[in-house]
Design a binder for these strands. Structure first.
Length: 423
RNA sequence: GGUGGGAUGGGUGAGUGGCUGAAACCAACAGUUUGCUAAACUGUCGUACGGGUAACUGUACCGCGAGUUCGAAUCUCGCUCCCACCGCCA
């Protein structure tokens, strides 16, 4: 959620930023600021009336103590009119408040100055391309056929037990999955991230804190009986550890990681993009989360990008890094780098990680602050990234490392899997 | 699921209608003393929002929401969460 103070003082800058998302928010923000001015005016009035009432009440108390019952009664009568006014103003102020909040929730984050305007994935900026695209002397087999051939993943069984998008991993497929998780967690640990095993269901306040609610309500699975949401990413429980937290000084750098399954309804997706492991309702991911002083978030973002980059290099997967254009970024993000690996049989790039800085957008909702040197509260910056999401990594490993007589396991994983080939 | 108890500032904890935004103690921070550390002493020590260039000032907040009252941390109702014991159970 954008800070109202920022809209008051830097309206033009915000509008210019939002235009990179192809949003013209001029009218919305003007309307918002008008309401805000009215809100402040009414709030001042309301507080004046409350102050007057408080004073009268004190006087009444004194009168009773001094046995001046008659005067007390007179003062009581005076409060009647004020109480009516107070109630009316209160209703009005509350209404304005909730309207303002609704609009603030609906506005996306302002893109960082380095983010370019754009609409489509094609407008994203290519930052780096790494690794050789594999070539084969035979026709490469897509991962869903490889998975079937080697009995690594059973999609049909998933359909039987749950539904489409909930595969079973089995045998060496399951072991490979476990190896990837352990590898990613170990690397995060080496980079100084504290590991958490987090709850997979969260309450409404947590959903609001990280921005899934109310913006993306339909994307989460929901258990109405207990009013809990299944997490779409570990970002939600990990970041919400710091909801309503006021850090005591400026000297902090919080680095968290966790492996969790992620649950996404993916309402509306269909077709070729959802084939095999490309898009699932349940998938595994190791997430990294950082909470930083505003002056450090740039550095933190770079570190996270280089961390993910290292993972892909170690896995020997060809990848590219894109900086998303304004139109392709998520609602809460100020800047996002997407990592895509090349999938040799599908002959396309698959998104495997998204690393974003949110600046104060999440912390404003979370009420995550720190005390600066002047003892004033300031909002922290939050960042997060996938390091990494498993299914498409698995797909790329299977496809890129296939040979006529089996699949080679990347060296770095062999210590984790206990085997070097799948035959 | 049953029974009982509870929720107050960073912590412990006092507070049953006005003198309480909240005692006391601990922790923390600043200073004095000291060769350093410790101890002692003095002072500071909640958050949010509004108004104000500022000093400052107003309002709200004692789990959450509503109600009674001129006035609520304190009384009433609803809810949530926590703890203990019992039951069930990985």
């Amino acid at each position: 959620m954008l800070e109202i103070q920022r809209l008051r003082s830097h309206k033009e800058e915000v509008l210019a930023g939002l235009s990179k998302r192809n949003i013209n928010a001029t009218n919305t923000i003007n309307e918002l600021l008008e309401m805000d001015a009215l809100w402040r005016e009414n709030k001042t009035q309301l507080e004046n009336i409350s102050a007057e009432l408080n004073q009268l009440s004190r006087k009444i108390g004194d009168c009773f103590k001094n046995n001046q019952a008659q005067e007390a009664q007179q003062l009581k009568n005076e409060t009647q009119e004020l109480k009516v006014q107070e109630a009316a103003l209160k209703t009005h102020v509350d209404e304005l408040d909730s309207k303002i909040t609704t609009i603030l929730y609906s506005l996306p984050n302002v893109p960082h100055v380095d983010v370019i305007q754009g609409r489509l994935p094609e407008d994203n900026q290519l930052i780096e391309s790494q690794g050789e695209l594999p070539t084969f002397s035979f026709t490469a087999i897509p991962h869903w056929d490889l998975a079937k051939k080697h009995q690594l993943i059973d999609f049909e069984l998933g359909v039987k037990v749950t539904g489409a998008g909930f595969p079973f991993y089995r045998g060496k497929g399951a072991k490979l999955q476990r190896a990837l998780i352990a590898f990613f967690l170990d690397e995060a640990d080496k980079a100084g991230y504290e590991e958490f095993i987090a709850p997979l269901l969260v309450n409404e306040a947590s959903g609001i804190g990280t921005g899934q609610l109310p913006d993306k309500e339909g994307q989460m699975y929901y258990a109405p009986e207990d009013e809990l949401y299944l997490i779409p990413t570990a970002e939600v429980p990990l970041t919400n550890i710091y909801r309503d937290v006021l850090l005591p000084n400026e000297d902090f750098s919080i680095k968290l990681t966790g492996y969790t399954p992620c649950f996404r309804r993916e309402a509306g997706s269909y077709g070729k993009d959802v084939r095999g492991l490309n898009r699932l309702h349940q998938f595994d991911k190791v997430e990294i989360v950082r909470i930083e002083h505003p002056k450090n978030s740039e550095k933190a973002l770079n570190e996270m990008v280089s961390h993910v980059r290292d993972l892909l290099i170690k896995l020997e997967l060809p990848f590219r890094i894109l900086r998303l254009c304004g139109g392709d970024m998520g609602h809460a993000s100020a800047m996002t780098f997407d990592f895509e690996v090349f999938s040799a049989a599908q002959e396309k790039w698959l998104e495997v990680s998204s690393v974003s800085r949110f600046d104060t957008f999440q912390s404003n909702r979370l009420k995550l602050r720190f005390k600066d040197a002047q003892k004033k509260s300031q909002l922290c910056h939050t960042l997060n990234g996938s390091a990494l999401a498993l299914p498409r990594i698995l797909a790329a490993i299977l496809e890129n490392n296939q040979t006529p007589d089996g699949i080679t396991i990347p060296k770095v994983l062999q210590a984790y899997t206990g085997f070097d080939r799948i035959t």
